[in-house]
Nucleic acid binder design. Structure first.
Length: 595
RNA sequence: GGGGGUGUAGCUCAAUUGGCUAGAGCAUCGGACUGUCGAUCCGAAGGUUGCGGGUUCGAGCCCCGUCACCCUCGCCA
C-alpha cells in the first residue's frame, strides 16, 4: 500500500456549523453511499460519529465519478470544505447534521470486501457469526458504546481508589494450584517435569499477603481465570475489581465500596443513588426470596404456609411437612388468567429446578379455586389468602419439599414470573448487601462441610464458641453485593491469626500436613504480624452488563469465548506440536488429528 | 454429565395437514436519478433446507443418528 497523505484534522463527530468555510480532512469508514446520479452523498464514520460528505458533479466531474465507486466499509480520507446544509436538509438525528463536507479531494486508504453481516445496530445477527468476525462486530456502534462505557467505569474506579489512598499492585498470573474453589487452568512447567502452574482464579492469597506486608489499602483490576462451565454471565476469564484493606471491619469495606458504586452510577450513568445500601441477612434473603441474591426490583415474596397446610388433607403438603420439609408459596400478581397450559409450563419450569411439581390456586372474587382447593377447609383457604396478601386475579403457586429445594424452586419461579408478568421496570437499579452468610455448608458430594466463601473467611466473633459443636450455625463476616438479582461481588473479613486459621482448616478437613504443604506461606505469614484485614472483589463484566441492561457478559468483553470456552475467531484452544509436548513433559491421551 | 431451544439465499426470516419449480425484506451486481440521510425506481443473480441414514408415490416438514450454536441444572462468581 502506498503511503497516504490526507491525515485527519478532525474526527467524524466534531464538525458543527461553527466550522463553516474551514477546509478539513476526515479519515474513516464509508458507512453508506446515496448516489443520485448527480449529487452523491457519503456518510463517513469513525468511533466519534458520522459526517456527511457531498460530491457534486459541478464542483468536479472527475471527483464525482471517482466517488461513485466507493463501497461500504472502505477506508477513505477526504479533504473538503465545511458547508452549512441547505435549508430543509439539516439532519436533527445527527450531531453533525447541521453541516456537510463538500469534497475537494479524497483517497481510498483501503478497500473492503462485502461484509458477512450488516453492522447496523438494528440488525440482529447470530452470535456465532459475530464472534467469528469479532473485529467487525466491534465496529458496530452498540459494541463500541459498550466498551467505551466499560472503559469509563474502570477509569472512575481507578480514580476513586487512588483518591482514597489505595495502591494498585499487580499479582502473579503463574501461581500455585490450591485446593478448593474453582477448577484451575493449568500451565505445565518446562523446567520441572510433571509440575504445573495454575492461572489464578482470583488474587486472594496475594492480596492478603500484601496486607501482611503493610500496604494497608490494595486495589487491582485483576483478570481471573476459572475452568468451569459457562453461562450468559460467566466467562472463563473475567475481570474483577479486587480490593483489600487493613485495620477494618466489614462495615468499612462495604462503605468504601458503596462510595465507589455511587460514584460510578453518577459519573458513568448520571444517576444519583441512595446510600447506604440495604443490608439483608442471608437467612432473610433466603426465606423471603428463596435466594442469596434477591432481585429487589419487585415484590412477590415467598410466604411460609406450613402452619396452614399442616391441617389440610393434601397429602403432598402434609407428607412434606411430616418429613421435616417446608411448604411455601408465592402470589403471582394477575396470573390467574393463565391457561392450564401456561400453568403446566410453570410446573415444567419448576421441575427443571428439581421440584416434583407445583400446586396452584386461583384467587377469584368468590374465593380460591383450583384442583387442590378441595383439600382445604374454607377457613384454611381464607387463611392462605390473607397470609399471602392475595388479591383477586392472583395465581398462588406452592412448592412442598425439603426447605432448600422449596427456596430454590420458588426463588427461580419468582424471577421467571417477574419477567413473564412484566413486573420489572427498565433502568431500575436495586443494590443490596447480603450479610451474615453461614460459614460452612454441607457438601453432598464430599460428604463433609465445606467453606461457603473460602477458608480464609473469619467467623463472626459471637459464633466462635460454637465453631466446633455447631459449625453449620456459624455465621461468617462475609458480605455479597447484589444488584437486580445478580451477584456483583463478595468479600469478607479474613482470619488474620494463625491459631484460628488452623482451627478452620481442621474443621474443613484440611490436615496440618496438607495445610503446611499448600498454604505454608500464608500460615507462616500470619506468624509474622498480620494485621486484621478484609476486602472484596466485584465482577466488572457483570456490573457493566447490568448498567447497560444487557443479558450477556459477552457483549461487554471485546474478545469473549463461546459456551464451549472456545475463541471462534482465533480457534483457541488449538493443538500444539509434539515438540512442544515434549518440552513440557506432557502427552495428550489421544493425539489430535493433524490439521 | 442432564434438560430445553435453534439450524432454510451473504444477513434476518417465511413456507397451512407431507404436495414446492423453496419465497420475502435487506445486502450484492447492472441500469436510471441533483438534496439524500434505512434515499428512491427498474432489472438481475443468488439454495445439496447443518450433515448422514430411514419412512413415503412424494420430506424443509415425520423417525433415528450426528454436528454446530444458544439457554439452563449440576459446577462456578
Amino acid at each position: 500500500m502506498a503511503s497516504w497523505t490526507l491525515k485527519r484534522t478532525h474526527t467524524c463527530g466534531e464538525l458543527r456549523a461553527t466550522h463553516k468555510d474551514q477546509t478539513v480532512t476526515l479519515n474513516g469508514w464509508v458507512e453508506n453511499r446515496r448516489d443520485h446520479g448527480g449529487l452523491c452523498f457519503i456518510d463517513l464514520r469513525d468511533r466519534y460519529g458520522r459526517t456527511q460528505i457531498v460530491f457534486s458533479p459541478q464542483r468536479s466531474a472527475e471527483l464525482h465519478a471517482k466517488a461513485s465507486g466507493l463501497r461500504p466499509e472502505w477506508v477513505v480520507a477526504v479533504r473538503g470544505v465545511v458547508c452549512p446544509r441547505p435549508g430543509g436538509t439539516v439532519n436533527p438525528n445527527l450531531s453533525t447534521g447541521e453541516i456537510e463536507v463538500e469534497a475537494r479531494e479524497f483517497e481510498v486508504l483501503n478497500e473492503a470486501k462485502v461484509l458477512p453481516f450488516p453492522l447496523s445496530d438494528d440488525a440482529e445477527v447470530g452470535e456465532e457469526l459475530r464472534l467469528r468476525h469479532r473485529y467487525l462486530d466491534l465496529r458496530r456502534r452498540s459494541m463500541q458504546q459498550n466498551l467505551v462505557l466499560r472503559a469509563k467505569l474502570v477509569q472512575v474506579m481507578r480514580e476513586y481508589f487512588a483518591k482514597h489512598n489505595f495502591v494498585d499492585i499487580e499479582t502473579p498470573f503463574l501461581v500455585r494450584s490450591t485446593p478448593g474453589g474453582a477448577r484451575n487452568y493449568l500451565v505445565p512447567s518446562r523446567l520441572f517435569a510433571g509440575s504445573f502452574f495454575a492461572l489464578p482464579e482470583s488474587p486472594q492469597l496475594f492480596k492478603q499477603l500484601l496486607m501482611v506486608a503493610g500496604y494497608d489499602r490494595y486495589v487491582q483490576i485483576a483478570r481471573c481465570l476459572r475452568d468451569e462451565d459457562l453461562r450468559a454471565d460467566r466467562q472463563p476469564e473475567f475481570t474483577q475489581l479486587d480490593v483489600e484493606m487493613s485495620f477494618v471491619q466489614a462495615d468499612d469495606v462495604m462503605t468504601m465500596l458503596e462510595g465507589c458504586v455511587a460514584e460510578i452510577m453518577e459519573r458513568v450513568l448520571g444517576r444519583k443513588i441512595d446510600l447506604p445500601f440495604r443490608r439483608m441477612p442471608f437467612a432473610e434473603a433466603l426465606s423471603l426470596y428463596g435466594t442469596d441474591k434477591p432481585d429487589l426490583r419487585f415484590g412477590m415474596p415467598l410466604w411460609d404456609v406450613a402452619d396452614i397446610a399442616k391441617s389440610c388433607s393434601f397429602k403432598v403438603f402434609t407428607d412434606a411437612l411430616a418429613a421435616g420439609g417446608a411448604v411455601k408459596g408465592i402470589a403471582a400478581t394477575g396470573a390467574a388468567r393463565y391457561s392450564r397450559k401456561e400453568i403446566d409450563e410453570l410446573s415444567t419450569f419448576a421441575q427443571g429446578f428439581g421440584a416434583k411439581g407445583v400446586a396452584w390456586l386461583k384467587v377469584e372474587e368468590a374465593g380460591l379455586t383450583g384442583s387442590i382447593a378441595k383439600f382445604f377447609q374454607p377457613a384454611e383457604l381464607a387463611a392462605l389468602r390473607e397470609r399471602m396478601h392475595a388479591a383477586p386475579g392472583d395465581l398462588l403457586l406452592f412448592v412442598a419439599d425439603k426447605p432448600e429445594l422449596v427456596h430454590q424452586v420458588l426463588g427461580a419461579l419468582r424471577n421467571h414470573l417477574a419477567g413473564k408478568l412484566d413486573l420489572i421496570k427498565d433502568g431500575e437499579f436495586r443494590f443490596a448487601w447480603v450479610v451474615d452468610f453461614p460459614m460452612f455448608e454441607y457438601s453432598n458430594e464430599e460428604k463433609t462441610i465445606v467453606a461457603r466463601h473460602h477458608p480464609f473467611t473469619s467467623p463472626k466473633d459471637e459464633d466462635l464458641a460454637i465453631l466446633e459443636e455447631k459449625p453449620l450455625e456459624v455465621r461468617a463476616k462475609a458480605y455479597d453485593l447484589v444488584l437486580n438479582g445478580v451477584e456483583l461481588g463478595g468479600g469478607s473479613i479474613r482470619i488474620h491469626r494463625h491459631d484460628l486459621q488452623r482451627r478452620i482448616f481442621k474443621l474443613l478437613g484440611i490436615g496440618d500436613q496438607e495445610a503446611k504443604e499448600k498454604f505454608s506461606f500464608l500460615l507462616e505469614a500470619f506468624e509474622f504480624g498480620a494485621p486484621p484485614h478484609g476486602g472484596i472483589a466485584l465482577g466488572i463484566d457483570r456490573f457493566v452488563m447490568l448498567l447497560l441492561g444487557l443479558d450477556s457478559i459477552r457483549d461487554v468483553i471485546a474478545f469473549p469465548k463461546n459456551q464451549k470456552a472456545m475463541d471462534l475467531m482465533t480457534g483457541a484452544p488449538g493443538t500444539v506440536t509434539p515438540r512442544q509436548w515434549k518440552e513440557l513433559h506432557i502427552r495428550p491421551e489421544e493425539p489430535p488429528k493433524a490439521t
